[in-house]
Nucleic acid binder design. Structure first.
Length: 206
DNA sequence: AATCGTGTCAACCGCCGATCA
DNA sequence: CTGATCGGCGGTTGACACGAT
């Protein structure tokens, strides 16, 4: 990839990481952990910006990062959540264990975007979900997500919660959405749920 | 064999919100 | 309260790989 180069103004190295640099960063983090990205490079003996170190760790060096081709299941998940969340890559990446937001974003632009435009998903029927179908708030929201498909504007979804979740969610609501999930609409839905249940963390879904 | 065009993906850039001094 | 710093995010770039001509 990019050949390492030195920025004469800042004195920081840019471009591709060498195996030596990788080793320094991995050794430092495994020994001292992540405490301050902007100060760490100096202590780790690297002439890189904190941002560069963070990116390298998050996208490549972190042992939790999965390498290799995306599975069909992972691609389905990305398509599914992209249809709802749009270009919220970090939120989508959280739904694909072991994949970074950068990887998800790249894969979308390189492969999935074309697939969507070439082979749009057909319109789904209106869907009604009730608490009887699910066992947890998270599952309910997953059902909610499943009722959408991409590339159309005519599906609708009614979601109702009821006694199954009591006393966790002590309310009944139905929410109608007339387009396949603009971020504002989905957020509005979540806020309804969230405002009625303190244990229901919005971040857990993202 | 050489050149060109295209795809892939690691890395950079700029912006923004949160936190700190 | 305010400015500085940091971390995180999404958009974009550009080097390299590889197939087509």
């Amino acid at each position: 990839m990019r050949t390492p180069r030195c920025n004469s103004q800042s004195g920081l190295t840019k471009g591709s990481w060498s195996s030596e640099e990788d080793q320094k960063l991995v050794t430092y983090i495994s020994r001292y952990g992540i405490w301050n990205w902007s100060k760490m490079p100096v202590y780790a003996g690297l002439s890189r910006s904190g941002k560069s170190c963070r990116l390298r760790w998050m996208n490549y060096l972190n042992p939790k990062v999965k390498r290799g081709n995306f599975t069909n299941e992972e691609e389905k998940t990305i398509l599914h959540y992209h249809s709802i969340l749009g270009n919220k890559w970090s939120a989508i990446a959280k739904k694909v264990p072991g994949r970074s937001d950068n990887e998800v974003k790249n894969h979308w632009h390189a492969h999935l975007k074309k697939r969507i435009t070439q082979d749009p998903v057909p319109v789904t029927k209106p869907n009604k979900i009730t608490s009887q179908d699910t066992e947890s708030p998270t599952e309910l929201v997953d059902h909610f997500f499943s009722s959408f498909s991409t590339g159309h504007t005519t599906s609708s979804c009614t979601l109702e919660t009821g006694s199954v979740f009591e006393p966790v969610i002590e309310f009944e609501t139905s929410y109608n959405i007339t387009s396949p999930g603009t971020v504002e609409e989905v957020e509005s839905f979540w806020q309804q749920l969230y405002s009625n249940n303190e244990d229901f963390e919005l971040q857990d879904l993202l």
